[in-house]
């Protein structure tokens, strides 16, 4: 009985002390982490908006790939130029989130990767500069490549070994394009 209590007490003590230290470190780092995430999102919004005006965020609840969107307004005329979508999907290592801007017809203007848990050196190549170039200008007249065979040889090499990441990003962007086309139709009526 004595051993039983000693065992429970030691394990309880170790867990409590570990928990207390983690609370302390969390208090020190949480503000900084929040600030990092905020700056990262703002930087990505600036990149995909090309310095145009951005409206307030509109939450989307009925779409599994799209979290929210912003209206993109021309910085000179303030007319609707397109949309910025916050997209989410599942990659090889977990959730991938993107910010993508589309013109009103559903063509992709720019894509920025916000977060991912892909394998370093394999799926994480999606973070590399130029990875998203293959999607730019596609969505309406030219279809978004959903399959590796629809890519040029250099692009094929770039995604080889990380097809699941590529397919996931393509599907998200394609759904985004459909969503924007529907938004455009709604706005016309």
């Amino acid at each position: 009985m004595k051993l039983f209590f000693k065992t429970a007490l030691v394990l309880g003590l170790i867990c409590s002390i570990s928990g207390a230290i983690l609370v302390l470190v969390n208090n020190i780092t949480s503000d900084r982490i929040e600030l990092n995430e905020f700056n990262k999102l703002n930087l990505a919004l600036n990149k995909v908006s090309f310095n145009n005006n951005i409206s307030d965020k509109v939450e989307v609840t009925d779409n599994h790939s799209i979290d929210s969107y912003y209206n993109l307004m021309d910085f000179k005329t303030n007319s609707l130029k397109g949309y910025i979508l916050s997209l989410k999907g599942n990659g090889y290592g977990g959730e991938i989130s993107l910010l993508a801007s589309y013109d009103t017809k559903g063509n992709i203007m720019a894509v920025e990767l916000i977060s991912n848990s892909e394998t370093p050196g394999v799926g994480k190549k999606a973070e590399n500069k130029g990875y998203m170039d293959k999607y730019i200008g596609k969505g309406s007249d030219i279809a978004i490549p959903l399959n590796k065979n629809q890519l040029s040889d250099p692009d094929k090499n770039l995604v080889s070994g990380a097809t699941i990441t590529f397919t996931s990003i393509s599907k998200m962007l394609n759904e985004g394009s459909f969503f924007v086309k529907n938004l455009g139709e709604k706005n016309e009526y």
Binding site: V25, N26, R32, I33, N36, S115, S117
Partner: peptide, 28 residues
């Protein structure tokens, strides 16, 4: 418990002060 506490501390420190390294190491 002891090891996971230190790993979580390391993860939080990397996330706050070395976000590039935190992102590149991902799930590992």
């Amino acid at each position: 418990v002891i090891i996971s506490a230190f790993v979580t501390i390391l993860e939080m420190l990397f996330h706050a002060f070395l976000p590039e390294v935190y992102n590149s190491l991902g799930v590992y």
